[in-house]
Design a protein around this nucleic acid. Sequence first.
RNA 1: GGGCCGUUAGCUCAGUCGGUAGAGCAGCUGACUUUUAAUCAGUUGGUCGGGCGUUCGAAUCGCCCACGGCCCA
Length: 494
Amino acid sequence: MNDKTQEEHKLIAQRREKLRKLRERGIPFPNDFRRNALAGELQKELGDKSKEELEALDRRVAVAGRIMAKRGPFLVIQDMSGRIQFYVDRKKLSKELLDEIKTWDIGDIVGGEGPVHKSGKGDLYVNLDKAVLLTKSLRPLPEKWHGLSDTELRYRQRYLDLIMNPESREVFLMRSRIIDYIRDFLKQRGFVEVETPMMQVIPGGATARPFVTHHNALDLPLYLRIAPELYLKRLVVGGFEKVFEINRNFRNEGLSTRHNPEFTMLEFYEAYADYHDLMDLTEELLRGIARDIKGTTEITYQGETYDFGKPFARMTVKEAILHFNPDIPAEDVEDREKAAEHARRLGIEVKESWGLGKILIEIFEKTVEHNLKDPTFITEYPTEVSPLARRSDTDPFVTDRFEFFVGGREIANGFSELNDPEDQAERFRRQVEEKEAGDDEAMHFDEDYVRALEHGLPPTAGEGIGIDRLVMLFADVPSIRDVLFFPHMRPRES
RNA sequence: GGGCCGUUAGCUCAGUCGGUAGAGCAGCUGACUUUUAAUCAGUUGGUCGGGCGUUCGAAUCGCCCACGGCCCA
């Protein structure tokens, strides 16, 4: 380590010196100031009153927050609700207090008390009687007008982004409101919120690469869950007939504007329902979120508008492939070799072990998915790629499954659950074969889960909704990093 | 993993043809006390992401590396 890394920046040194003086004078980080008002609420409550009305009212408040700007005798204070000014009156305050306020810096956290008045220009301010520095900030804030725009710093030092950029705060508040809405929606319909293991002996419920950890006392490898599905269905076996969980999943895959190694998933299961019921429920839920959060069913995402008010389109995987690939004849999606030919032409590396179902899904992902702009349910997913979904009664090649797309992105995946334990065992065996053939995303055989099914899973439908992507949609942001407080980044060397 | 773009003062950004590195904000000194990106005068602040190379001379050209962004797989 050289001197350079230890040497402190001048701006920090100046502030540290001010803190040193505070220490000399007593308690540098007091915690006895109690506020009784919030800036934003005062603006709402008193913002319309005239100067004279406010003086007559003589509303005395105690407000605390961070100094965001200094404007002559005014300090701009920001708290969680908004902003209000403090007025520093030279004629009114003691010399000692005036001298102290002079040492306050932008970024410091302060408290002030006094009556709320209004300036000649019509802005509210607290006419300070008392004021106290509560927390000295040792580091300067970013530029007051442009805020913090460097994306790397916004993600690495999210607190600065939140202090400086109101749009960013708004996204996270919206995220919270969306999750609240979903909880209320499901609870009102009789669903019970539960929690199931994040660390699993057999990672199940999805096809994805897991993170591995190790339990010392049991001397056992444990996997961070890639999905809660198999545990939630065990609960349905146990008589919890309507359950949901909103929690993190972990997948050991790359990072992108749509992927973070940990992400939030809503999963819910309803006994005595099928996938059609869930499509209806999903439609109602998304429409409800749109109305509640945006006040309209017209949702604009990255310049394009989608109408959540109209009934959502529904089509099958095969129909969608034919629709977006007019050059593929209808009979070719029924034939493995012909479908494989089309797949190869599209640049897909077709593996020997793939059946028709897997080939169709690859073609679907390559040519259809990004084109599904308007809210659309896609149904009839091949059994081959749906190892946990109930087989269709009319066509065993496909399952009673759907996925939901909007803006070219998958948002939800749901199906009538496979509750035939013997079929499930057979499907697990196929997965194990694929794993042995080199597919490291294929599922493990979960005997314990099959045993649960053998006790009887009632006819059930279940669904997962990716919360991060949902929030991206409603918040109209292009990257998943914009809806995660602390997106994963490569650590920066010191 | 591949392609393209970016990295200059605490922050937001300029920097021409390769010729001593600039502005605004923030900071500091002072004036000013009803300001609204407060204003006025003065002023401090740089390993130009890191390394190697080309050159009399590199923020600028070349190569390698790091981190980030976007796109593709």
